[in-house]
């Protein structure tokens, strides 16, 4: 395992990067998890006129400015996807499949996932609905399992679960050639609702209904509450105070994931506060 970082920042949009530069300036050992394009939403913006100091700029141009800024400070982005973060008490454990990073403080800047939850998905979470098929697969030995896959990685999980499950349905939410084991039944339909009593019994779809013991929903990014178990959420957003502190000690959040309005400069401003709060928290831990 690598040494413990002072601050781990999840997300490379304006909030995450603003947190990163403010923590870096204060000499903290940081790690930033994100993507090569920094933020997909930034790439898509044709014209931005409300970012103070950069009038009439395109999203791509603004992204370049951000990139130059972090490069200048020697901030690198780690292109890995965090599956789960565990609040262990005095540090956070960040999991990337089997690999683990440790950090004293955490800044969440994950943006907002626009795809909606299925009806009943939340209600049956842990009662047949899950987000990590490989984690819970052995509990469904010989049973009927349905996987709703939003990306190619879901296919690998499906093939693994297929070795244990009695029957596996795969519902692809994308259009691509699939590499699935032969006896997996591909269902080209749209899921609508999770149905059951004390646990999952079936999945209603647009065209029909599948009887199933478990439903796994495998998306690109999971909601903050699933990413960080125990994190308090209010009206779909991470609950924070004026210092961008969440309910978990040492965990801060900034940007779209904490609430509207969804704007670049608001995200950057919150990132600054979250970054500085994280710095203050790390210092207080060191002087304990």
């Amino acid at each position: 395992m690598e040494d413990r970082f002072d601050i781990a920042i999840i997300g490379s949009g304006p909030a995450g990067l603003s947190a990163a530069i403010n923590a870096k300036i204060r000499n903290k050992k940081i790690i930033v998890f994100g993507s090569r394009d920094l933020s997909n939403k930034l790439l898509k913006a044709p014209k931005i006129n409300n970012y103070l100091g950069f009038y009439d700029i395109s999203g791509v141009e603004l992204k370049e400015k951000f990139k130059q800024h972090i490069d200048h400070l020697g901030i690198e982005i780690t292109y890995e996807r965090i599956n789960n973060v565990y609040a262990m008490g005095d540090y956070f454990a960040l999991m990337v499949n089997d690999k683990m990073y440790e950090a004293t403080a955490l800044v969440l800047a994950t943006g907002m996932e626009s795809s909606k939850l299925l009806k009943g998905e939340e209600e049956f979470l842990g009662k047949g609905v899950g987000y990590c098929a490989t984690c819970d697969a052995p509990l469904y030995k010989g049973k009927v399992v349905t996987i709703i896959g939003y990306n190619r990685e879901a296919e690998e999980e499906a093939n693994y679960v297929n070795e244990l499950a009695g029957k596996l349905y795969y519902i692809p939410m994308y259009r691509k050639d699939m590499k699935l084991d032969q006896n997996i039944e591909i269902v080209n339909d749209i899921p609508v609702e999770v149905v059951g009593e004390d646990h999952v019994q079936s999945l209603k779809t647009k065209k029909g209904e599948l009887t199933t013991d478990a439903i796994f929903v495998l998306k690109d990014s999971i909601s903050p509450a699933q990413l960080v178990p125990g994190l308090a959420i209010e009206n779909e957003h991470i609950k924070v105070d004026r210092n961008m502190s969440t309910n978990l000690k040492g965990c801060f959040a900034a940007g779209d994931c904490v609430g509207r309005p969804y704007q670049y400069i608001k995200a950057a401003g919150e990132g600054l506060i979250a970054g500085q709060s994280a710095v203050a928290y790390v210092d207080s831990q060191k002087n304990k």
Partner: peptide, 9 residues
């Protein structure tokens, strides 16, 4: 209690 919970909680 299903799933991981922070120590505090």
């Amino acid at each position: 209690l299903v799933g991981f919970r922070p120590k505090q909680e």
